[in-house]
């Protein structure tokens, strides 16, 4: 088996909405594939198809070498799924939630109890193990959800926006857990809106927008693909930002972005710098800040989708089943 996950031409339509318009993606065994995209791009739909929760209208997907439609039951024996919204029973305790999964997977009472205790310990939930999950904080719930998806020791794990809505500390904690899983040889498909998350965890990245893959590669390859460096200029007088934008646009042939008085533009060649300085000087623009830096995944994302990844984007809703 070359790929742990292999999808070709996945299409899914919900009424008028084309959620997936022909998605191809692959994940090599034991690696993390980051699926990146703005809200409504089709990330969650892709995960739901790969996790056998939705049948695609067209296209095929193999997970662990088995077809997700024809051999769904076999696929389910290999995968773990952690959704955007924690799929735990809030009325049950942490222990009961995990025992439930263990029993459903055919473990004996003792076996599932031991597995539950081990996982709760590992996810730092032992103290809360006998409390109903409804009393858990957001971070604890995500950890319990992740623990629940690991009861059956899956070889392939789907994490659908596992850190959306978590505070930075909980997010870091979850990243460590995911790194631990990778060390165990698990293949992970991770969807996220956070570029930093993909940068931190993913071996390969697929960028999805409007149900299509618009870019794929390693994080580094994607960064170099969209211009090597970013030139940033902040004029002392905010009113000068229009002049600055015009000058850098003339010299770089790229469309500059202006935000809060800061003009930034991707450049392919840093030799343009002296010309920029000269032209600014000639135009009589006082420059407060001028810098050159390597582009971040943020810029890559912006260049590819024309969208910023805002922190305040509303989380996608999964309830209708018709969302992204």
């Amino acid at each position: 088996m070359t790929y742990a996950i292999q999808a070709e031409g996945l299409v899914k339509r919900f009424g008028e909405t084309q959620a997936l318009a022909g998605v191809d993606l692959t994940a090599r065994p034991g690696t993390v594939l980051g699926v990146l995209g703005p809200n409504g791009a089709g990330k969650t739909t892709a995960v739901r198809v790969l996790a056998t929760l939705l049948k695609p209208d067209a296209g095929t997907a193999l997970v662990g070498g088995f077809d997700v439609v024809r051999d769904a039951h076999r696929v389910r024996q290999l995968i773990g799924l952690t959704g955007q919204y924690a799929g735990v029973d809030e009325m049950l305790t942490g222990t009961e939630n995990l025992i439930l999964i263990g029993r459903l997977l055919g473990m004996s009472r003792a076996e599932s109890r031991a597995r539950a205790a081990g996982l709760l310990e590992r996810f730092d939930l032992s103290d809360a193990s006998e409390r109903a999950a409804k009393t858990y904080s957001g971070g604890m719930r995500r950890r319990l959800d992740l623990a629940a998806s690991l009861v059956g020791r899956p070889q392939i794990l789907f994490l659908d926006e596992p850190t959306t809505g978590l505070d930075p500390r909980s997010r870091n904690g979850l990243w460590d857990i995911v790194r631990g899983l990778i060390d165990d040889g698990v293949t992970v498909l991770l969807t996220t809106q956070y570029l930093e998350e993909a940068d931190q965890l993913a071996d390969d990245i697929v960028v999805i927008d409007h149900g299509r893959v618009i870019a794929h590669g390693t994080p580094d390859a994607l960064k170099t693909q969209v211009g090597g460096q970013i030139l940033e200029v902040r004029p002392v007088t905010r009113a000068d930002e229009v002049t600055v934008a015009r000058i850098v646009s003339d010299l770089t042939d790229a469309l500059p972005e202006v935000r809060d008085g800061l003009v930034s533009v991707p450049i392919a060649d840093s030799s343009v710098m002296p010309a920029v300085v000269r032209r600014l000087d000639e135009a009589g623009v006082l420059v407060g800040e001028l810098s050159l830096r390597k582009s971040s995944l943020d810029e890559v994302f912006f260049a590819l989708t024309g969208q910023r990844t805002e922190e305040d984007i509303e989380p996608e809703l999964t309830t209708s089943g018709a969302s992204a």
């Binding site: 056998t52 959704g83 919204y85 735990v88 999964i101 629940a148």
Partner: peptide, 12 residues
């Protein structure tokens, strides 16, 4: 609505 069904349906 709480996602429990998704979890159950992803199990064999």
């Amino acid at each position: 609505t709480k996602g429990v069904f998704d979890r159950l349906r992803s199990l064999p």
